[in-house]
């Protein structure tokens, strides 16, 4: 069924958008082109109300218990979490690298800010990603227009506020075009 078929249940609080949660795990020892990356991505839930979100979220594995090289993407319905998607092609993302142990709280705060429309940048936000790696965890938020500095600055400032990060935390912006060129996300 399409994300468009999901509707809020009776008495539920609707969200501004419908979202899909995608899970992907890197296949060890294999090069990742877009096609194989996409093949390893699965939608594990779709929601359009606050209550539907919590229902899915409470059944998901806790991010601090996720092992290995895995990613969870929460993206607006109709946008694939791929650099090549038409919503992302001209976009980019803010990247925050976190030491192990900090990520669960930061991820939840990021998701709640996105679902609650706290970024105040219209339709610009495409989705958010948590990437579990061996040495560190990385969270990122993707937006449509990398070239709009007013938008990217506003996202950065909101991100800094809602994540309540230690003062020395580095935030980097990377365009998806750069990622396509160097074939690397971070």
């Amino acid at each position: 069924p399409s994300y468009k078929d999901v509707v809020p249940g009776p008495g539920e609080h609707p969200l501004q958008y419908t979202y899909c949660i995608w899970y992907s795990k890197k296949q060890p020892g294999r090069a990742q082109d877009a096609a194989s990356f996409e093949k390893n991505m699965n939608v594990i839930g779709t929601f359009c109300s606050v209550e539907q979100f919590w229902k899915i979220y409470s059944h998901m594995i806790r991010v601090n218990e996720m092992a290995g090289h895995s990613d969870i993407h929460v993206f607006k319905g109709g946008i694939k979490p791929l650099w090549e998607d038409k919503a992302n092609r001209l976009g980019g993302k803010w990247i925050v690298r976190l030491r192990k142990g900090l990520v669960a709280r930061c991820w939840e705060n990021l998701i709640l800010a996105m679902l609650g429309e706290q970024f105040m940048v219209g339709d610009e936000v495409c989705g958010a990603v948590i990437s579990i790696r061996f040495q560190e965890d990385i969270i990122s938020i993707w937006n449509r227009t990398a070239g709009d500095e007013q938008v990217t600055s506003r996202i950065r400032d909101t991100l800094r506020r809602v994540l309540n990060l230690p003062p020395n935390t580095v935030m980097e912006y990377k365009t998806h075009n750069e990622s396509l060129k160097d074939k690397s996300s971070f």
Binding site: P14, Q16, V50, E51, W54, A113, L115, G116, Q118
Partner: peptide
Amino acid sequence: GTRIIYDRSFLLKCRASPMSN
């Protein structure tokens, strides 16, 4: 148009009691 805005504490409250306002 109007956007549906929720703050963190409201969203967390919905988790605790799903049908609350």
